Every structure is written in C-alpha cells, then in structure tokens.
Amino acid sequence: MTTEPSVSETEMSPAVTDTLDFSVVICAYTERRWEALIEAVESLERQTVPPREVIVVIDHNEALLQRALERFRDLSVPVAVIENHQERGLSGARNSGVAAASAAIIAFLDDDAAADERWLEFTRDAFLDERVMGVGATIDLDWQGPAPQWFPAEFNWTVGGTYRGMPTSRAPVRNLIGAAMAIRGSLLKGSEGFRSVLGRTDAVKLPLGGEETELCIRLKQRHPANHFVYEPRANVKHKVTLDRATWRYFTRRCYAEGLSKAHMSRLVGKQDGLSSERAYVLQALPSGVLRGVRDTVFKRDLHGLGRSAAIVLGLLATATGFLVGSKAPKNTTTTTTTAATTVP
C-alpha cells in the first residue's frame, strides 16, 4: 500500500455515527484454529462500539459447522453461524458473509486474529468521511513462539501483517489487508464481490491471495473520486504459527504473491495492479537492505545481514512468480498454475 496525502479529520455527529453500524464477518475452514476462532469472536464482544452482528462463515466443513453452532450461542453480541453457499475458499466464504450481512459497514476479521477493543471505534471514525470506501487496520504479528530474527519487517505481509513502509497516520491507500478490514456494505453488495479465482482454498497448500486487493482496485476504478484509507489506531493481533517462520514458507509465499499479482494485473490492468509495488520496491526494500547492513556493522547484530538477504531473496522469489504468471496462458487461473507446486 502506498501513502497519499493525509485525510483531514471529520467531526463526529451522533446522527451520522448511528447509521454506521457493523456486520463483522469471520471465515473459518479448519478445526485446527478452533481456539483462535473463539478468541476472534470474544474480541468482538469487548468492542467499545459493539457490532450489530457477527457472522461466522464455515467453509464446507460440517464438523466445524456443528461445533460453531453449539459454541456461539447466547453471547453478548448476536452471532450467526452460516455455511459457505458458494465455491469453496476464502472468496466464496466472504461473499456468503456479505450476502447475509445487514449493517451499513461490513468488516472482515481473520479467524486467527483478535481485535483490540477500539478496532471498530477507530474504524468508524474514518468512515465519517463519505469519500472513504473502506478502512484498514494495523495488524500486529502475534508469533506463536520466538519470532525469527532473520525475518524482515518489510515482508510482514507474507504472514498477514502490517509491514514497514506503510503510513504512520491515517492516509489513503490503494488496497486493504484482508486480515482486518471494513468496506461499505452498499459497495460490496453492488459489486461482483471477491473473485474466487484469486481466493485461497484449503485444497491448494501454497498460500495464494490478492482477492481483497483486486476488489479494492476494481471499486476504485468504478468510484475514482473515493478512496480507501489505512487507520493505524485501529488495531488487531494476527497469530503466526511457527510453521510460517521458515525460509521455505517465506520464499514460497513470495513466489505465490508474484503469481497472484500477475493474474490480478490481467484483471485490473498493470498500471493499477502494480502501482503500490513500484514504490515499495524502489523505496521500502532498498532502505530495508541498508538497515540490515547497518544493524550488523554498527550494532553487531549478525541477524541484520540475514534480514537484508531475506529482502533480496523475497524480491527475487516474487519477481520470479510474477514472470511465470505473466507467461501463463490467459485462460489459466492462479490456482491451477500453482497446483503442481503445492507445499506437502
């Protein structure tokens, strides 16, 4: 995401804020994240601005569906547990949640994330500007063990977190990060929604993504006078399991991102599809490499060189994925392109 001129604060009007209610959609597909899912729902019970409803969408998992129906009864906020009635995968599950939502703002929270109690409050504040189509949050990484010292903050996006180089105050951005985001319901219901060709599925182990980026770009193209904003005061914590703290996962995730960017660029055009990436590659990554070297030279942090090396490797892996994806036949989807390179 790229910083644009800052958005001025808008005074809060009770009449306006009363109409800015929230449906929060949480998509879940596996019982392996059961405890995290409970934490995600419970974090919504503690919001200073309570959601109108929480919608837990179970993605084609009957055992998980029954377990969730039993667990999420009689909570302090209304919780609806529904099935994904569309194609298996994150995009289909999100679209099922959108169809069931009734509030003015539809927020999305990952099933392995927990929201700070003021997440919806700060998110609502940003929506007071009627030009704002959607709002993103600060997503802090909650490593489920020691964080790898070689892991560069510039690549936090590989595990669903806010990365170094993003704005430090509220600012317009090209797209939101899907782990915690909110979009006006009228825009979502008036569009084709999330495209499943880009959404992740449990069947493909190589992590794919880009569906929220493509949606944001598509909405911006249709509403050029409006924009998305990043609100760093809105905060969530995103769990990161140690199986993602490996060089193997890191490089494959970067490669998959390149594949997804190539396919997304076909859908929305290279100018919009790669606008943020140009600034990121030319500014954030070179600064990160130099920072790692300085850390090693001046602070005697040997892991600094590892972080610099990871930035270079991550860029190369992403560029390779993009080139491979760009040369694939136009009728080949990102999912089928990567099916042969799944992680065991």
Rank of each mutant, 00 (worst) to 15 (best):
A40I: 10
I55E: 10
L75E: 08
R88Y: 02
R71T: 12
N61K: 00
E70F: 00
V24H: 00
V25W: 04
L65T: 06
T30F: 04
T30L: 09
E39H: 13
D59W: 00
I38K: 13
R71L: 07
H60E: 11
R32I: 15
L65V: 01
R52T: 06
I58A: 03
D74L: 02
S91E: 05
D18S: 13
R33M: 13
G97V: 11
R88Q: 12
E87T: 13
V56H: 04
S76W: 02
L20E: 08
V56Y: 02
E11N: 13
R73P: 05
V81C: 08
H85M: 10
L37P: 06
I55S: 12
S13W: 04
I55A: 06
R32V: 11
L37I: 15
V25E: 05
S43Y: 05
D21T: 15
A36C: 14
V41H: 06
A36K: 11
S91Q: 09
T30Y: 01
R67F: 02
R46N: 12
Q86L: 14
L69I: 07
V41N: 03
S96K: 07
L20V: 14
L75Y: 01
L20M: 13
V24L: 12
N95V: 06
L44S: 00
D74T: 09
E39P: 05
S8M: 10
C27F: 01
D18A: 15
V81W: 02
I58S: 01
V56A: 02
V54Y: 01
V41K: 07
L65Y: 07
A93I: 12
E9F: 14
L75R: 10
S13G: 02
S8A: 14
D21N: 15
G89V: 06
R73G: 05
Q86V: 08
V24W: 02
E31P: 08
L37D: 09
S8F: 02
I82T: 07
R32C: 07
S13A: 13
N61P: 07
A36P: 10
